[in-house]
């Protein structure tokens, strides 16, 4: 090979790659609006993006898997945590996690109420981008579903049997969002929500206690009410509620069919 041929090889390789790359870039631009729901990109979301940048969030967290690898990925965070939870968290992260226990803590970002709602709107928009289904399974922030629970059982929508308890258990791991993204069934393991170990026993005690102001008379009623109207009885703790509103999403009454709620209650009642 001569130097001239070497140069020709360089020019051809570079040109072919560059032309292919630019062509694909044009095509990508054609597809961006659909893939990213650009029609839903409101000024509030764009301001939320500025909050995200100005607070340098990306140098600790990752978003769409890109960032600092020092704090949890936030791609789907709004699908795992409701707005009340995220709002309270952003106001004071130290209420939710302990630096003593986890050896790291998010510094208070000192955002105004408007900035908080804007950045949550931004994160919610990011969460709905078509990104080929990543992450392949939900990334949990803290806690564990491991000890003695359901390790190795993938979420499934298929009914495992006609038994309502078995159906409820399957739903517990798969209803959108999965209950077990926030609740463990291992004693003492509190994730974003309190552990549900011993729920039925605790429910009986709660409905009998004077603090309880709801309408449930039995533990099954109480569990049903907690799913459909999470704010009727608030489990104590600043990490679970604020301003008399539970951080648990309140969409289950409408998003689940009555039959599904029945089977969930049937399953949760077995946690004694």
């Amino acid at each position: 090979m001569t130097k001239r041929q070497g140069r020709l090889f360089f020019i051809i390789c570079t040109l072919v790659s560059a032309i292919a790359f630019i062509g694909l870039t044009f095509d990508s631009h054609r597809r961006f609006p659909g893939l990213t729901n650009e029609d839903k990109l409101t000024p509030e979301i764009i301001r939320g993006k500025d909050v995200w940048h100005n607070s340098n969030c990306i140098n600790c967290h990752t978003l769409l898997g890109e960032g600092g690898y020092y704090a949890p990925d936030l791609t789907k965070v709004t699908q795992q945590r409701g707005t009340p939870y995220l709002t309270a968290f952003l106001k004071d992260p130290s209420q939710f996690y302990s630096e003593e226990k986890h050896r790291r803590l998010m510094p208070n970002p000192k955002l105004s109420d408007t900035e908080i709602s804007e950045v949550i709107a931004f994160l919610d928009w990011v969460g709905h981008i078509d990104n080929q289904g990543w992450p392949p399974r939900p990334i949990i922030v803290s806690g564990t579903t491991i000890p003695g629970t359901d390790v190795g059982q993938p979420p499934t929508h298929a009914s495992v049997s006609t038994d309502p308890v078995a159906q409820g258990e399957a739903l517990f791991r798969s209803s959108p969002p999965a209950c077990n993204a926030c609740h463990s069934i291992a004693p003492g393991v509190n994730l974003a929500g309190p552990t549900l170990a011993g729920l039925a026993t605790r429910a009986t005690a709660i409905v009998a206690s004077p603090e309880y102001k709801g309408e449930a008379k039995t533990s099954a009623d109480y569990i049903r009410e907690s799913i459909t109207h999470p704010s009727v009885y608030l489990v104590p703790g600043a990490m679970y509620s604020a301003n008399n509103q539970s951080f648990m999403p309140d969409n289950f009454a409408t998003d689940l069919e009555p039959r599904q709620i029945d089977s969930l209650v049937a399953y949760l009642e077995t946690l004694k």
């Binding site: 070497g6 090889f9 360089f10 020019i11 051809i12 390789c13 570079t14 072919v16 790659s17 560059a18 292919a20 790359f21 095509d27 990508s28 597809r31 961006f32 893939l35 990213t36 769409l64 898997g65 890109e66 981008i129 078509d130 990104n131 080929q132 990543w134 992450p135």
Partner: peptide, 21 residues
């Protein structure tokens, strides 16, 4: 030439899971 052949289109490995085609 080899660097550009692999590297230019290799940009694609940063385009996984971020909302591109």
């Amino acid at each position: 030439g080899l660097v550009f052949m692999a590297g230019i289109l290799g940009t694609a490995h940063h385009y996984y899971w971020v909302g591109v085609p």
